[in-house]
Structure formats: structure tokens, C-alpha cells
Design a binder for these strands. Structure first.
Lengths: 244, 244
DNA sequence: TAAAAAATAGCACCAAAGGGCAATAATATA
DNA sequence: TATATTATTGCCCTTTGGTGCTATTTTTTA
């Protein structure tokens, strides 16, 4: 009895909450009615449109709005980047950027380079027919897709769906990853050291010898580390460590 | 003593040889002097050139020849595909395809589709400036790079280097994978079943109960499977299985 | 400086893993 | 059909892992 309660109380729900907070940065909660609608749309997907052509923007907004997506529009890359600086709260959900290539000031490729440093968010690029160079550069640079203007609504929607799927995947991956990182950061250095050796396949006895400590101490650290990491079996530990 | 010899003689070197044979299909051995030179070049990289323009072919062959690569040239995709049918022996080494897009008969994109079914070998595509559509289709279809004619020698060489690196990686991955597969195929069905459960984290006792067999039997199978797979520790087994 | 956290370790006990030895039963294959 | 392979099991013994209980020594921190 006392055993169980001891285990369970160590890593309760608040850790998960901390993780989610860390990932989505600042979480905004719907308060007004329009907020609520926006939050719903964001849950489906938020598309950041960057294009200096207001007609394109208008057309895409109309399309995406109809499909139930949330849209943020920017008439230049620099405008978008500036707004990103002051990272204001946003509703949670998958998102992607749909940016034109040919723009005054910072062009799409330069934007892509800058985004790369910020963690390479899901990016779809678009441009006129002529730009084979740009298309190659964009796709080679990690763009998820490249739309050649003029394009059909279906094509764009498909690309966006895929990009949002990628976004979701990356988010859940990052979440899982940071969860593991946080769990690891809860270990003392000794515990971390020992658990790594365990995952390497070393026996308790070997570890004790190498670190020149008693077998009982190794067992103790191992046990503590398992508890803190939330694993009960060796195989779980190995898989946990290998995902890192 | 008798214990060691029993373990070691089970998986000797000839298994590795079998694996390599399986991967590189038919291995050709250099016999003549020119064979020897070709073998050396193939070791560095073999580039399969497909273009209907003889001038391009000639220029690329000259370039690649100078750099020490081996070249196979084809004036059409269908010619290449036909020769692939009768898979003749070749020297081992990384390789890639450098194909034009616009060709009479089977074009580059169609070739790409057919290659996809054959295991998606490393492919670089090339085309004239105008083809933004083709560039997007090619890259989205998994081409490693896309060269826009006319291109500098440096650009082409860089792309080829990268493609060969990918080729090497894929080969070693396939080799490792088939090695594991072969090792697994040496297990009896019972052994395979039990070892999977072990890797899932089940205790011998639990396995014995589920399969309704004696604990000793489980241990026996487990032991045999470990020997056949060439692992000694549980962590090794987990990693082996997880790479599959 | 006092309290908290971390590291250390001995003793004892039980469960699980690993393996030697010997033997039987069922299947597959030459 | 005879032999080889595979599957099965019991008995027994050692090593390793997992834990409870207790206690001392450092380090860190409030």
C-alpha cells in the first residue's frame, strides 16, 4: 500500500501540463464568442498566408475560410517575421505557412532560410510558372510542397492538408521528446549515469565495480531512476532512451 | 569450453557472405586489366546517365570520367529499363541515376514512377529552365535533386556526390536489415514467438502461462533464440528487434 | 546554520534469469 | 521407415534483479 502511493505521487498529471505549456508556448483560452469560433478553426488548422498580391490573399482566405481553417495574412515576409518576434498567444492546433516566393523585400527563399533557424515550420511555397530555379531551391530547402500559380483550389487544399498533417506529427513528436527530456532532467546526475549504463546492457555488479560503489547503491539509484522515468521494465527503459 | 565452441560455430562468417551476395545480387569479379580499372571506378561510384541528347551525354561522361566515376549511358529510359530486366553482374559500389526529363518515349517522370516500384534507387533529374512543373513533380516524387540545364560542372558533381552518399547509406541499411532478417529466419516459429514476447517485456513465467508450457521450456527457447540471433543481453535483443 | 536532498551502504529475503543434465514426445524429412 | 529437427519437461544450482529496513556521510539550499 505505502509502496504504491509512493510511486504514484511522484509523477502526477502536472508534469504533462508543464510539457504542453512548453510546446505551445503561450496558450490562449477562448473568452468571447468570436474567440470560440476562432479556437475551433485553429483546432482544424491555422494557415499563415504571405503574399504581396492582395488578390491572391483574398482568394485564398475565401477558400480556406470556407473550408473551416483559420487564416493569418501578411503582405510581406518581414511583416510576418516581426509579428513572430513578439510571440503572442495563440490557440492550439496544427498550422503551416503558405508563402509566395517573389515578393519585394525579403523573398520566399530568404524567408525559408530564416525559418530554418527558427525550427523549420511546415512551409508550402508558391510562385509563377516560370520559376524552375525557385521551385528547386524551395523544395530542396525543405518546403513541403510547391504550388505553381495559377493553381486549382483542390491542389492547394490537398497540399495544405498534408502540411497540417506534418505539423501535427512534428508537434506530437516534439511533445513526446520534451516529455522525455523533462523526465530525464528529474534524475540526479548519478541516477542518469547509472541508468545509461543499464540501458547499455551493463550489469549492476559491473557498474558498481566501475564506479567503485556498493552493489546496493547501484540498485538504489537504478530503482529511483526507473521510478522517475516512469518505467518498470528494462525493455521500456531501452526504448525510452533510444527515442532520444 | 564445450559451451563456447557450441556458441561460436553456429553463426560463422559465411552468413555475412550470404547477406552481401543477396544485396548486390550478382557480383562480378575483375579478371582483365580493364575490368580492374572499372571495378575501381565503380567502387567510387557508378552513374547511370539517361538523356536523348548525345551532346549532354558526351559532356557528362567526359566530366565524370575525369572525376574517376564509372558511367553507363542510355539514350532512352526504355533502353535502360530493358537492360535492367536481364540483371547482369556488376561491380559493387554506390550508384545513382542521372536522367533527363524531356525524352521521347518514356519521359523522366514516367521513369521515376517505374523506378519507384523497383525500390526507388537514388535519382537525380535534369531538365531545361522552363519546366517548373516537372521540377516540382520530380522532387515531390522523391528525386534527390533537380538540375536545370545548363548547369555548372560543380553543381552536377555536388549533386552526384550527395546522391552517392544516399546510395551508400541505403545499401548499408538494406544490408543490415537483411542480415537481421536472415538471422530471424533461422529461428523456429516457437523461438520467434517467445523472443518477441521477451522483447515486449514479458517475463518468462508470463510467457509460460500464456502458451501453457513449462517455464523450463520457455527458458530453453529463449536461450536458443539468443544464440541464433547472436545476442547475449536483453538490451541487445530489444535494439535488434526495434531496428526491424 | 539548520533543514532538505543526494549519495552511500550493510543485511536479509524473494523472484527471475541463466543454464547443466537427462529424457520424452511429436514432426519433418531423406 | 529411420534419422534429424523441434518441442517439451523436471530437477537442481548459481547469479542477478528487486526491495524493505535502517543508518551514515556529503552536498545543497533555504
Amino acid at each position: 500500500m505505502s509502496n504504491e502511493s509512493k510511486k504514484d505521487q511522484k509523477y502526477p498529471i502536472n508534469i504533462a501540463v508543464t510539457v504542453i505549456d512548453k510546446i505551445t508556448e503561450t496558450i490562449r483560452r477562448p473568452v468571447t464568442l468570436s474567440d470560440k469560433r476562432l479556437a475551433e478553426r485553429c483546432l482544424k488548422g491555422r494557415i499563415i498566408l504571405i503574399d504581396d498580391d492582395p488578390e491572391i490573399i483574398a482568394a485564398l482566405v475565401a477558400l480556406l475560410d470556407m473550408e473551416g481553417y483559420a487564416c493569418d495574412t501578411y503582405i510581406s515576409a518581414s511583416q510576418f517575421l516581426q509579428e513572430q518576434q513578439c510571440n503572442r498567444p495563440s490557440f492550439p492546433g496544427p498550422w503551416c505557412i503558405l508563402s509566395d516566393i517573389k515578393m519585394p523585400g525579403i523573398d520566399g527563399l530568404e524567408l525559408q532560410r530564416q525559418l530554418l533557424e527558427m525550427g523549420e515550420p511546415p512551409l508550402i511555397m508558391m510562385s509563377g510558372e516560370s520559376g524552375a530555379y525557385e521551385a528547386v531551391a524551395g523544395l530542396r530547402g525543405g518546403a513541403l510542397d510547391f504550388l505553381i500559380k495559377p493553381f486549382d483550389a483542390d491542389i492547394a487544399l490537398l497540399a495544405i492538408e498534408r502540411a497540417l498533417a506534418v505539423s501535427k506529427e512534428r508537434m506530437s513528436f516534439a511533445l513526446k521528446n520534451s516529455d522525455i527530456t523533462i523526465r530525464f532532467s528529474g534524475l540526479t546526475s548519478r541516477e542518469a549515469d547509472i541508468v545509461k549504463r543499464v540501458a547499455r546492457g551493463q550489469l549492476n555488479r559491473e557498474i558498481a565495480e566501475e564506479l567503485d560503489i556498493a552493489l546496493r547503491t547501484v540498485k538504489l539509484h537504478r530503482q529511483r531512476a526507473f521510478e522517475k522515468l516512469g518505467v518498470t521494465k528494462l525493455v521500456e527503459l531501452v526504448r525510452l532512451i533510444d527515442t532520444l
